[in-house]
């Protein structure tokens, strides 16, 4: 009697497991199909359009002559500014909150605010940047403004991932270092930071791949959609050989270029848009691959 009951119970549990597994697999298949359809669509529409002249031409009113040179350079310049601002500030803030800040009411409020900021719609950051950087500070619709806006947008992501990476380091390691007579900073520089580098880098790349696809805040600050020139070169032939003029230049970025082409009535421009989309997807996927590689590289070295 008892034995029969057990067998029935086991069968029931196994059936439940089977149902759960089937549902999971179906959902996974839906995701995979959606993503492949998206990529297939982009590839079939855009791949034939990607060639050397597409990458090295300025936009044009003739679809077949148009290219994404200014958008690529713009994206690169804006991402450069974003990296320079967001990475040091984000890591610094993460370290401070995790290693130095006392656990009190004020730091709790700061922590909650940072988590909330990560969820604020990006166009709101654009509005803030329009009021603050463009109008109040007079930076205009420039690369500098865009870099500032995007770095503020991705800062919460970098801060949160930095903190999570630092938190995985066991406290016994901190005590080991401090007991030898290190200052807190020596402990952080020699131990906390190197051991959490994998997680921090992953966070940075996730943040940057979000930033590179952002459109709304940049349109809000007034980024141009049609640019037929490059920003000033950062290297000059005369002393001091370095110029920061490019920071003040107008720009466009890949997603804005894509948006512009997609909103035109002519079919040929839609092909250009698909090609640009493909370039963006390839850039983002490569960044994610780099992130995964770095993470596994750093994880291999350190096992707790």
């Amino acid at each position: 009697m008892m034995v029969n009951n057990q067998k029935a119970e086991i069968k029931k549990s196994k059936n439940k497991e089977f149902i759960f597994l089937s549902v999971s697999l179906i959902l996974l298949a839906v995701l995979a199909i959606t993503f492949s359809a998206l990529v297939y669509d982009l590839v079939s529409n855009g791949l034939s359009r990607i060639d050397k002249s597409f990458m090295t031409s300025f936009p044009s009113r003739f679809a077949e002559k148009a290219g994404i040179l200014s958008a690529c350079v713009g994206s690169l310049a804006v991402m450069g500014v974003t990296c320079l601002l967001a990475i040091p500030i984000g890591i610094g803030a993460g370290i401070y909150l995790e290693e130095y800040a006392p656990k009190n009411f004020i730091t709790t409020i700061i922590e909650v605010s940072i988590s909330n900021l990560a969820g604020v719609p990006s166009i709101v950051y654009g509005l803030m940047a329009l009021g603050l950087f463009v109008q109040k500070f007079g930076f205009g619709a420039s690369i500098l403004t865009a870099g500032l806006t995007l770095s503020i947008l991705v800062l919460p992501i970098i801060i949160v991932t930095t903190r999570e990476a630092i938190r995985t380091i066991p406290n016994t390691i901190r005590e080991a270092a401090l007991a030898l007579g290190t200052t807190k900073w020596q402990m952080i520089w020699d131990h906390t930071l190197p051991y959490s580098m994998g997680g921090i880098l992953t966070g940075i790349i996730i943040a940057l791949s979000r930033a590179i696809g952002e459109t709304a805040p940049l349109i809000t600050i007034g980024a141009l959609t049609f640019i037929a020139f490059l920003p000033a070169s950062p290297i000059t032939s005369t002393f001091p050989f370095i110029s920061f003029q490019w920071l003040k230049d107008p720009f466009t970025v890949l997603p804005i270029q894509m948006f512009n082409w997609v909103s035109r009535p002519q079919e040929e421009f839609h092909v250009n848009a698909a090609a640009t989309g493909l370039v963006l997807v390839i850039v983002t996927i490569s960044m994610n691959i780099v992130a995964l590689t770095l993470r596994s590289h750093f994880r291999k070295k350190i096992k707790w």
């Binding site: 016994t172 390691i173 005590e175 080991a176 401090l178 007991a179 200052t183 051991y195």
Partner: peptide
């Protein structure tokens, strides 16, 4: 405390070598 820790070393309950 740094001066003290330079003179007096500690060995912990669980082995905690640096990675």
């Amino acid at each position: 405390p740094l001066e003290v820790r330079m003179k007096i070393s500690m060995v912990f309950q669980k082995p905690n070598p640096f990675p």
